[in-house]
Amino acid sequence: TADTRWRRLRRRLARSLPGTLRGRFVLIMVVGVLAAQLASYVIWTSQVRDSRLAQLEELSSNVAFSVASTMRFFRSLPREYRHIVLDQLRDMGGPRFFVSVNEKRLDVADIGEGPEKARVVETFRRILTEQLDIDAVSVEFSRPETLRVFNNEVLLKDL
């Protein structure tokens, strides 16, 4: 029955404990120290992770504002001037980003996953949406080797 099982368990527990009072104190102290170490480790890693995510969010919001201002500049240009301005900027050393105007959305082999990527993409979407007053924006990560530029046939590494 449950009662005899409980008594047997208690007996087995008592047998595995140290026989002396001193031994039992030592055991309690060791267990206590290990538990404190574990608790501090858990708190410390979660704080480090939070601060890393906060840093990442600040960094990505800085880049997102910069992207938004570049996009606003190109959007404000009359249609027929966009290519001329792009060529001029490239000759002069270029903007901070690679910019092109295409007839359709280029395919991007999106890479990466996890909370960090989600945070960056979410920050970019939020800032670009509110800064440019649009709702159709795609934010993706690409490997440099598979990055397409100008159209779906030209890879960056071939340029």
């Binding site: 980003f97 959305r105 280029l106 159709a136 795609s138 934010v139």
Partner: peptide, 21 residues
């Protein structure tokens, strides 16, 4: 490092493409 690509439809058949190269 990975490259961030942002694409935005300005008008029909006009996509602004921006990559952090």
């Amino acid at each position: 490092p990975p490259i961030l690509v942002v694409q935005l439809e300005l008008e029909p058949a006009t996509w602004l493409y921006l990559a952090t190269i």
